[in-house]
Write a protein that binds this DNA or RNA. Structure first.
Lengths: 210, 210
DNA sequence: ATCTGTGAAGCGTTTCACAGCA
DNA sequence: TGCTGTGAAACGCTTCACAGAT
């Protein structure tokens, strides 16, 4: 797929942003765009957009720009966002339930097909159409349901154990919503969602820049 | 506070991570640490930790390391995380409700003191102890309640309008959970929380690195 | 004429290596 | 001796400037 062996992490993040903006353009029936408006919408430099895309191929037409539909598909291919990813969620508390009910996952091909928790009071309950299983059953359920991704929404003190269970069961990537840092082997990717980081970025900037 | 005029954005993000790790150490009754274990826990280089801290001051003791309590306080000061930030939330849907009920906000001094929505069926309802007001009343409520931050949990198509209302009412920073890109004037800071970016980072890495 | 794709330059962050201090 | 704090080197990402394509 890509032409280069290493692609900056920041490029991957931006591709996801371009995807979002292109989807909005598509909805607004915009057929053609170019690096300049795309860049403006994403708060980056126009050559940054072109360079990011160049890591993966040549998706534009010189003198014209980019066909929105085509570029959107191309970016989805780059990120492997154009297929389904079967996913397990561990920790059916407030946040877990909110995510189970979050329609955007389905719309984007992230299919949450298993819900797990270690609280005996929750096990067996059905939440948004999914039976809640004991976390110990990940071992059997991950292969059975063809699960590749895990989402952790447990309290922080249970996050590492949840991760260990996911890893042992064979998932390839973990999205961690708990505030705990987690150790994974090299072949299992981990990403953190901690919006307090962004909040502190706000409080820092507000307080510092006059 | 800080000794340098410009501090890398990445440094701020990492400080938030150090804070998290130090809080865990504090809970585990660890009194002294050093750049090496801190770095390992955060998946960064030890000199990165020292350099990040050096932007703000000298918080360590040569030959000894860092006193956990002291360093934690110092970092909180750097990020202005050691005071209350009165906050408004706009968009009381699933995600909005999950956040209103999220105890971590209180624990960290982010006080959500106003809930707003433009759906007439929701206005007047009480969600987790907060009466839901019409978004139009931000103008009056933001000064009245001393609100400085705004959290947007509306659907994407209403995000810009929500932001405009927050900005006009005088908030200084916005945390946007909707997938829409938002335009703000220079004096209003905006941060995006879009975990699909992280998901795509996972799907990309899983698919690419064999 | 216009906008992409890209080598090279510029710039900012990360890492190194070591002086400084307990 | 051990660990911090820091100038300097290394590195990688971003931006520029322009050749190339329509």
């Amino acid at each position: 797929m890509q032409k280069y062996d290493h692609i900056p992490r920041a490029t991957i993040q931006r591709l996801a942003t371009y995807m979002q903006v292109l989807e909005t353009m598509k909805k607004d029936n915009i057929k053609i765009t170019s690096s300049e408006p795309l860049a403006t919408a994403c708060d980056v430099n126009a050559s940054q957009v072109r360079k990011d895309l160049a890591y993966f191929g040549e998706f534009g037409v010189r003198g014209v720009g980019y066909y929105v539909d085509y570029l959107l598909d191309a970016i989805k291919d780059c990120l492997h966002a154009n297929r389904e990813w079967r996913t397990a969620l561990i920790g059916v508390g407030n946040l877990g339930r909110a995510l189970l009910n979050h329609q955007e996952f389905n719309r984007r091909g992230i299919r949450i097909v298993g819900a797990f928790d270690c609280d005996p009071f929750k096990i067996g309950e059905v939440a948004y159409g999914l039976e809640i299983f004991c976390s110990k059953r990940l071992q059997e359920k991950v292969p059975e349901l063809g699960i590749e991704l895990g989402i952790i929404t447990t309290p922080p003190e249970r996050a590492q154990r949840a991760a260990d269970q996911l890893i042992e069961a064979g998932v390839k990537g973990i999205l961690n919503f708990s505030s705990a840092r987690i150790v994974t082997p090299n072949h299992v990717y981990i990403e953190y969602v901690d919006f307090f980081h962004q909040i502190y970025s706000l409080t820092f900037n507000i307080s510092t820049k006059n």
